[in-house]
């Protein structure tokens, strides 16, 4: 049975790395409400799985990404089934929440443009490739990405190259169409 010190330790770790929970939830949810629900779902699962966390086997952040992504992918799959619609996270509501207030208008416009491109790109990926890109955007090493997903480092590099090429080709097509 887990005692209070365990819970205190968990809460400290969760507070320290809470960004992971929100970023994963943001990448897989459909709306702000859904994102908050998913974040709570991830936090609850993290606590339930905390007993089996072994720091000799994995870093806390690696373990946290695994739990968060496993919950988020399962959530996205069942949400897709129940809504019978395409998985479309990081919608305009997400972006408003994230990019919302404060900075000069020009900065905000530039940032919004880049975020919109990022949104459009992430939205077209399937759940597993979305996890891969999310970890890459989070600046995780290939070794850690491989460790989180359970694939080889070579496979990570191959997939990321393929995604980069796809993105380039897509943008070239869009530019040609625009010109």
């Amino acid at each position: 049975m887990r005692g209070k010190p365990d819970q205190r330790r968990f809460e400290t770790l969760l507070r320290e790395h809470r960004g992971i929970v929100f970023k994963v939830a943001g990448a897989y949810a459909r709306s702000v409400h859904d994102r908050d629900d998913l974040a709570q779902e991830i936090a609850a699962q993290l606590w339930r799985s905390f007993g089996s966390f072994d720091e000799r086997r994995a870093k806390f952040t690696t373990w946290m990404y695994r739990v968060a992504l496993n919950v988020a992918i399962s959530h996205a799959r069942s949400a897709k089934r129940s809504a019978a619609e395409h998985l479309e996270p990081l919608d305009s509501v997400h972006l408003e929440t994230i990019a919302g207030n404060g900075d000069a208008q020009q900065d905000a416009a530039e940032r919004d443009e880049r975020l919109a491109a990022l949104h459009a790109f992430v939205a077209q990926l399937d759940a597993l490739n979305r996890a891969l890109v999310l970890l890459y955007l989070e600046d995780r090493s290939y070794a850690e990405i491989a460790d989180v997903l359970g694939i080889t480092e070579t496979n990570v590099a191959t997939k990321l190259n393929r995604i980069k090429q796809k993105l380039r080709a897509q943008q070239t097509r869009e530019q040609t169409r625009g010109a």
Binding site: G26, I98, R114, L118, K164
Partner: peptide, 28 residues
């Protein structure tokens, strides 16, 4: 490029952290 998107992501998540730290409490 994907690497430029990475920069946008870093900026975005910086703001996200600040916003959510004050607004959302994770329950366990």
């Amino acid at each position: 490029e994907l690497d430029e998107m990475k920069q946008a992501w870093q900026q975005m998540t910086g703001r996200l952290d600040a916003l959510q730290a004050s607004n959302v409490k994770l329950r366990t």
